[in-house]
Design a protein around this nucleic acid. Structure first.
Length: 435
RNA sequence: GCCGCGUUCGUCUAGUGGUCUAGGACGGUUGGUUCUCAUCCAACAAAUCAUCGGUUCGAGUCCGAUACGCGGCACCA
């Protein structure tokens, strides 16, 4: 049977790290065996629906090259869910209920799991699942690689269809997964506790149960779920900070998954090729981003200069020609694309004159005026240093500060070459106080 | 409160009963290369494998308890 997975977010806000990770695992699971990757919008909560979120979610998948084979929107499929719910009522596995909804967080946790409306024989209202008593229900989790079970005495009569006619996740996901032939369900860990409900729905509707796996939650360094720390973990904020999609993706997939050989560099294609569900970690990883910086450096260095110019254009107002000229000097020094301006500022604005050792500067000026050449400067400066008993390092540091105003830069001659003879000498002169 | 899951260096992880005096990566420290920075190279520090008990000739690996962490307990997903 063909492997078919789905990425099924609810459009309630900005896509974040968790979305990307879940999508990447589902994508890899499907594509590893030439399967299909289905994109489904779970917009059954009218109150939390954010229309722009759908576009952002699509953009995310496109940006990371996770192209979907089919696309579904739950709000366009309401008839399907209602029919399924009514079928369950007809077969005696569900019942109508007109109780007001409650929120356990606010109202306290009820130990009453059996809904009193079961016996009322209503014909309108919400539809709830009639959970059987005293049954053991279990499944084998794809991620945890073990059987997980519950006693149905601890499973509550969950709502399947709301009184507004919209299904809850429990019903909609089961129906859609079945209708679209999803073979493997990879979802967030928060669904683990609801799995017995879904298992019962599958059974009562006569569906085959798909493989189900619950992904670990990425933890915030302060503890708790990362996704609750909104904003700062949105995909766009990382991209806006100058992280490459390839680096972000590589970093993210290794948060909770690892190959047996501990390989770390993966493009999307390589990840798909090497993906194996045995590689899932069972404990929650913590979102520490030091390693993301390292991945980003690696990927920047791997990027062809011509491509890098285009990427950099979003982070600086310098022209393509200017960027191209400077790339060789900064490529190894960029941690994020955003660093470009800070690393190249002195090319465009002369530093405030820093008075340096006048003898060194005037020597350099005379050398450069005679012959504006790196090799020549190197030879002359070393000879000068030997004669005057000056450290070569001090000599160049003096020039560096005079020309760039910085103490850490690429090799000096590389900078002078780009600046040109006139500008270089002019900067040296103003540091010397001659101008 | 009830239910479920987890626990190997600071972090991401390898490890599926002997080859583990626990390996790799990031980060850290030190040294080398270099005109500084970055790169590159080398080395070092860093995990009583949460704790206790059991099974076994032998346990990071199997079992149990405890602790701690995480998730869920809505007509939200």
């Amino acid at each position: 049977m063909k492997v078919r997975t789905r990425f099924a977010p609810s459009p309630t806000g900005q896509p974040h790290i968790g979305h990307l990770r879940t999508a990447a695992y589902a994508f890899a699971l499907a594509k590893h065996s030439d399967g299909d990757f289905i994109f489904r919008i779970e917009d059954t909560d009218q109150k939390r629906y954010v229309p722009e979120a759908v576009t952002s979610l699509k953009n995310m998948l496109t940006t990371f090259n996770m192209n979907w084979d089919e696309y579904y929107v739950q709000s366009e499929r309401l008839d399907l869910y209602r029919a399924a719910a009514e079928e369950l009522v007809a077969t005696g596995h569900a019942f109508y209920c007109n109780c007001p909804g409650k929120n356990a967080k606010k109202d306290g946790y009820s130990q009453i799991l059996r809904d009193p409306c079961r016996e009322k024989k209503l014909t309108v209202g919400a539809i709830k699942l009639k959970v059987p008593d005293g049954e053991k229900i279990s499944f084998r989790d794809l991620v945890f690689q073990k059987e997980i079970s519950w006693n149905t005495d601890k499973v509550f009569d969950a709502t399947l269809l709301k009184s507004d006619g919209f299904p809850t996740y429990h019903l909609a996901a089961a129906v859609d997964d079945h209708e679209t032939n999803i073979s493997h369900v990879l979802r967030g860990y928060d669904w683990m506790s609801s799995t017995p409900i879904h298992l019962l729905v599958y059974r009562y509707l006569g569906y085959e149960t798909p493989e189900i796996g619950h992904l670990t939650d990425v933890q915030s360094p302060e503890g708790g779920k990362l996704s609750k720390r909104k904003g700062s973990t949105s995909i766009s904020s990382f991209l806006d900070h100058g992280y490459l999609p390839a680096a972000l993706l590589n970093f993210i997939i290794l948060l909770g998954w690892a190959p047996k050989d501990n390989r770390e560099m993966f493009t999307l294609d390589e990840f798909v090729e090497n993906f194996n569900e045995n590689g899932f970690q069972k404990a929650n990883p913590v979102f520490h981003t030091e390693k993301l910086d390292w991945f980003n450096q690696q990927y920047i260095r791997k990027t062809a200069d011509t491509k890098l110019v285009k990427m950099l254009a979003k982070f600086t107002d310098k022209t393509g020609a200017e960027i191209t000229k400077l790339i060789p000097l900064v490529k190894d020094r960029l941690v994020t694309l955003k660093d470009f301006d800070a690393l190249t500022n002195y090319f465009f604005t002369a530093p405030a004159p820093v008075p340096g050792n006048a003898a060194i500067i005037s020597h350099a000026i005379s050398v450069l005026e005679k012959n504006f050449d790196g090799k020549f400067l190197e030879e002359q400066s070393r000879a000068f240093c030997a004669q005057k008993n000056i450290k070569v390092g001090d000599y160049f540091m003096t020039l560096r500060q005079a020309v760039t105003g910085q103490t850490a830069t690429p090799p000096l001659w590389d900078i002078m070459k780009i600046l040109g003879k006139e500008e270089t000498i002019s900067r040296l002169q103003s540091a010397h106080g001659q101008k």
